[in-house]
Design a protein around this nucleic acid. Structure first.
Lengths: 182, 182
DNA sequence: AGAGTTAGTAGACGCTTGTTTACTTGTCAA
DNA sequence: TTGACAAGTAAACAAGCGTCTACTAACTCT
């Protein structure tokens, strides 16, 4: 057994990120994280303090939505619609929505998530919008992102297979256009 | 202490319905339900078997969304938009979305929720739609209902207060119109 | 009035959780 | 080579969970 604090804590953080994204905060135990990282439970606490602190740190790294949001403002609706349609078809959902969806009701955890979604989704979308109340419209877009995740996870791959992906994408594009327009 | 099995089990069921709707499955304990109903924990198990069975029974009674969905098909988009806008403003969200949002990942519970949402929301909306693939479009509407709940719960009353309720309702109405049209 | 049924209760059972403590062991400077 | 420091481990902690068993007490029927 090679002893490497940096490598170990990095493995722990990666395992935490994947597990939290997949199962949400409550459903993941410190022992699951330790096991996945090939480390001891006590080390997880020693390196990251508490479970909530580890969650916050895992959240700070790994949002792929930002790359979709950033870009040409006029194509934002199309990019978001395409992303959601692809995710519906592939069976994968945004890790952010999974986490929100399964966050549990701990005020501390919801506060951490709130700050993260506000910074990486709402503010980021709002920054591209012109006209009054950009955050209100960005919030509506966030609604659709979150809702897609919830529904997809609840209904599973069975229902979605009967769906015409192109038609859904076109409808989503129009819906995004409505909530993003000035 | 008056002894009335029917009244006691009804109190338990009501307490379960309210608590599950407010906090979700995982966060509600059998002891919370018993305490809220003024009954003993053992009685809850005796009358309803298991926690999951009680959840399923609580779910079967108490969906107020159905009343909004049923009615004139041409006014469906307006009714849904109004409902969501009101709920955003009042700080209350659909109990169905709360439950889904906080369901945890137990396959049994998610299966129960899936069946419930499919029957009381998706199929009910789809029944009003004409044209091809009504369920696909009903699913998009469900996406917005679920998403509104997630976002509202995550952001709390603070952000929503800065929102122009009428403008949001109008945008929601147009978005519903797009996803419901043939 | 007394016996039997049954609503209601107290408490324990086994398990899992996040976290901590006391310990062992590998690594590297002196 | 040795000693000190840090990485890693095993085990226990206290608390909380769903569930079950053994018991008490109120109601009903003869």
């Amino acid at each position: 057994m090679t002893r490497d604090r940096e490598a170990t804590s990095r493995r722990i953080l990666e395992a935490a990120r994947e597990l939290f994204a997949e199962h949400g905060y409550d459903q993941v135990t410190m022992r699951m994280i330790a096991s996945e990282a090939g480390a001891n439970v006590a080390l997880v606490n020693r390196y990251f303090g508490t479970k909530a602190a580890l969650f916050a740190e895992a959240l700070a790294t790994g949002s792929t939505l930002a790359a979709v949001i950033d870009g040409d403002p006029s194509g934002l609706a199309s990019r978001l619609a395409h992303r959601l349609a692809v995710r519906l078809q592939s069976g994968v959902t945004e890790s952010v929505t999974r986490m929100v969806d399964r966050a549990g009701t701990s005020p501390e955890i919801r506060a951490i998530l709130h700050a993260h979604v506000e910074a990486t989704v709402v503010k980021r979308i709002a920054a591209q919008l012109e006209g009054p109340r950009p955050e209100q419209r960005a919030l509506l877009a966030a609604t659709m992102i979150m809702g897609t995740g919830s529904v997809r996870r609840l209904f599973g791959p069975g229902v979605i297979e009967e769906v015409d992906a192109e038609e859904v994408e076109e409808r989503l594009r129009e819906m995004f256009a409505i909530c993003l327009r000035p």
